[in-house]
């Protein structure tokens, strides 16, 4: 099982990365390259969609933490949506989630983003 990465733009400055398959020591460098590339576009928010992520190890978590660090440094935000229970468990064990905002589904995420958009306009 390999890694799939699908990048899309939800709204201006809001990037969604759909990650599928296996994020491990063999594949995580591909995600790292993708993130380094998208950081060039100075996103306001990065959303990881983990619906089809079946497997993660510390090598994968490292890349997510790296992304989190870089985005926070730039005053941008990071969000995660649809973590499968076993993926959530790995994050929980190494307490890797405190600064990321997590949503169970797209509806939750959308209403949060709509709220942010509102604030942005005001």
């Amino acid at each position: 099982m390999s890694l799939s990465i699908n990048r899309s733009i939800k709204s201006p400055g809001v990037i969604v990365l759909k990650i599928g398959g296996s994020l491990d020591a063999n594949t995580s460098s591909r995600l790292e390259e993708e993130i380094n590339d998208l950081l060039q576009t100075s996103p306001r928010s990065l959303i990881f969609d983990f619906e089809f992520l079946d497997f993660i190890s510390s090598a994968g978590i490292r890349v997510i933490l790296m992304a989190q660090k870089e985005l926070l440094k730039r005053g941008a935000s990071i969000m995660m949506v649809k973590l499968q229970p076993q993926i959530q468990k790995v994050f929980d064990i190494i307490k890797a989630l405190p600064n990321a905002t997590i949503f169970r589904n797209v509806e939750e995420l959308d209403s949060y983003l709509a709220g942010m958009q509102q604030k942005f306009r005001e």
Binding site: S57, A59, R62, L65, K69, V90, I93, K95, N99
Partner: peptide, 15 residues
Amino acid sequence: IPPEDREIGGLGIFL
């Protein structure tokens, strides 16, 4: 320590 400030090594073996 907040995850983004942590030393990167040792997480896997801990896991």
